[in-house]
Design a protein around this nucleic acid. Sequence first.
DNA 1: AAAACGGGGGC
DNA 2: GCCCCAGTTTT
Length: 219
Amino acid sequence: MTTEEVLKVLAILKNHYPTWNAPVVTFIAISQGSPYQVLVATLLSLRTKDEMTREAAVRLFQRADTPEKMLRLSEKAISEIIYPVGFYRTKAKRILEITKILLEKYGGRVPDTLEELLSLPGVGRKTANLVITLGYHKPGICVDTHVHRISNRWDYVNTKNPHETEFALREKLPIEEWIMYNDILVAFGQTICRPISPLCDNQCPVNHLCPKRGVNKHR
DNA sequence: AAAACGGGGGC
DNA sequence: GCCCCAGTTTT
């Protein structure tokens, strides 16, 4: 697909967007979540189903929604709160580790630049870009499995790894669409344009524009 | 049993 | 670039 065609597809998907659950981190952001909450929710979401992450994030923020409050919780306590999110021990440890750094080096604030965010342990490009876009409302592209998969499924980019996808999208996609592109592809990818057995025939509102419709019964 | 989950780090 | 890691839910 060309950029022009992708923009047409996005316009159609935008109309369907309200019928899908907003992705967790987006949900946190639009419900007045702080950059710190966006960061923590993103850490929870790594390799974890959206719904599990959402429930865990809500429970955790009831107990601690600021770095100061978070440090009062033990690693074990956090583990129990965020269960059954996968990798919960690692994530609890990482949340505390990063929170300490935020308090020691950044006065309790979350950095808003890519470089500073990437310097935090356990923060890669996807996490950093999500904090920048949803925490600080600055332009960025965070490529997760959905963005990567669907961008390639549309033949919009032809890339092997997420980093290439991010670079290609930065070149091709108008900057005004970056955040919406992310948001919509995640919501769309979780419900319709799934990795395996996507719902092309009955439920996809853009199947008539998709070069891979019916072909992608798997992967 | 195996795949999937809005990856990250080490090399 | 490739390989390994962490745990739970879903298929």
